[in-house]
């Protein structure tokens, strides 16, 4: 199982698509590692610079419909090779969400109101996210701020994928 949690990256926009997460021109790469420098390169977000802002981050907080567009699994891979194994959002596009779980990564949805509160309270601060899979809790902390805890629930299938490390192994044994 992968490690979840760490420093949080705030992407304060809805509908961030997979072309923005990893542009098509890098899809010629055969290795995941090669995607590393290009992750979020084309993100349309004021003051965002992927080369500066991605370093040291292990989790993303964002808004609605994250990962829409292309089916490329290169999007989760580009996040993964940058050390990001969890995205917390108001909602996800179907294929991206499934790709995350298929890779044993977490795509967690929280209600819009909670996402709002989190952005209000923590955006711009040096924020840490701690994930407790068994308890189903996300704990956000930042210096000088009261901690914020949110509940989440994975489906059985998602939980199995995260724990077993992916769908290929599961299916190979079962079908």
């Amino acid at each position: 199982m992968k490690q979840f949690g760490g420093k949080l990256l705030f992407l304060d926009r809805s509908d961030i698509n997979t072309d923005e997460i990893i542009p098509a021109k890098y899809l010629t790469e055969i290795s995941k590692e090669a995607l590393k420098p290009f992750c979020l390169e084309d993100l349309k977000l004021p003051d965002f610079d992927s080369r500066r802002d991605l370093a040291g981050k292990s989790a993303i907080l964002t808004r609605g419909n994250f990962g829409c567009g292309s089916s490329r699994e290169h999007a989760p891979w580009a996040l993964e090779v940058n050390g990001i194994n969890i995205v917390v959002a108001e909602s996800f596009a179907r294929i991206f969400r499934q790709n995350m779980y298929n890779c044993g990564m977490l795509a967690i949805e929280l209600p819009a109101a909670q996402i709002d509160e989190l952005f209000l309270a923590f955006k711009g601060l040096d924020t840490d996210l701690a994930v407790d899979l068994n308890a189903g809790t996300l704990k956000f902390t930042a210096p000088g701020k009261a901690a914020y805890t949110a509940q989440f629930k994975l489906t059985e299938f998602e939980s199995a994928l995260v724990k077993s490390g992916g769908w290929v192994q599961f299916a190979a044994e079962r079908y």
């Binding site: 294929i95 991206f96 298929n102 890779c103 769908w167 299916a171 190979a172």
Partner: peptide, 11 residues
């Protein structure tokens, strides 16, 4: 689908 689902589909 993504590459993992495709992989299982192929297999």
């Amino acid at each position: 689908v993504g590459t993992t689902d495709l992989e299982v589909g192929i297999l």
